[in-house]
Computed example of a mutant assay.
Amino acid sequence: MAGACESERPGKPTHAFDLALLEFLVCRLSKKPLRYEASTNELINDELGIAYPIIDGIPNMIPQAARMMAHQNKKQEDMEQH
């Protein structure tokens, strides 16, 4: 039984996101492809500036669960104008 507890250490993700899913997943709002951001463990729609969380390896694609990323869009717009 000690071996079973070892695999469930706190701080270690128990389920990693399968990058192969990016081939099939699209944003529910724009229907465009998403990119995976490992540092935040989210699927990002750069066009709309939203991030879908990934929980236990499962993307939460409900639009209401998405995080707005307005500050990043503003930075990108500023860079494109210069």
Rank of each mutant, 00 (worst) to 15 (best):
T14H: 15
D46S: 13
L34V: 05
A51N: 05
C27E: 07
P10W: 12
E42K: 06
E47V: 10
I58L: 04
I58N: 02
S30P: 02
L34T: 02
E37M: 02
A16N: 12
L29T: 15
G11A: 10
D18K: 07
P59W: 00
I55N: 04
H15F: 12
M61N: 02
M61S: 03
D46M: 10
L43H: 01
A38N: 13
E37S: 09
P10C: 12
D18T: 07
I50Y: 03
I54W: 05
T14K: 15
D46K: 09
Y36I: 08
N41L: 02
L43V: 03
P10N: 13
K32R: 13
C27K: 07
M61P: 03
G57S: 05
K12P: 01
S30A: 14
Y36S: 07
A38T: 12
E37N: 13
A38Y: 08
L21D: 11
C27L: 08
L21S: 09
R28A: 14
L43F: 02
R28T: 14
E47P: 04
G49Q: 06
A20W: 08
L34Y: 03
L19S: 12
P53D: 05
G57N: 06
I62P: 00
T40E: 14
F24Y: 14
A20Y: 10
E47Y: 12
I44R: 13
G11R: 12
P59E: 01
I54K: 03
D56Y: 00
L48S: 06
P33I: 08
D56I: 00
F24R: 11
S30L: 11
E42F: 00
D56C: 05
Y52D: 04
K32C: 08
V26D: 03
M61I: 05
D46T: 11
S39H: 08
I54V: 13
C27G: 13
L22G: 04
L29D: 15
E23C: 06
L22I: 05
K12A: 11
P53V: 09
R35I: 15
H15M: 12
A38E: 15
S39Y: 02
L43K: 01
F17V: 10
N41G: 00
D18V: 07
E23A: 14
L34P: 00
I54G: 01
M61G: 02
P59K: 01
I50G: 04
Y52P: 00
L22Y: 04
K32Y: 00
A16S: 14
L21N: 08
L43R: 01
P53W: 06
I54E: 02
P13N: 10
L48K: 00
D18S: 09
G11P: 06
L19T: 13
P13G: 07
N60H: 13
L19Y: 05
S39P: 02
D18R: 07
I62N: 10
I62K: 04
R28N: 15
P53M: 07
I55V: 14
P53Y: 06
F17D: 09
L19G: 07
C27N: 09
G57L: 04
E23H: 07
G49Y: 02
D18G: 06
S30D: 10
E23K: 12
E47M: 06
P10D: 14
A38W: 06
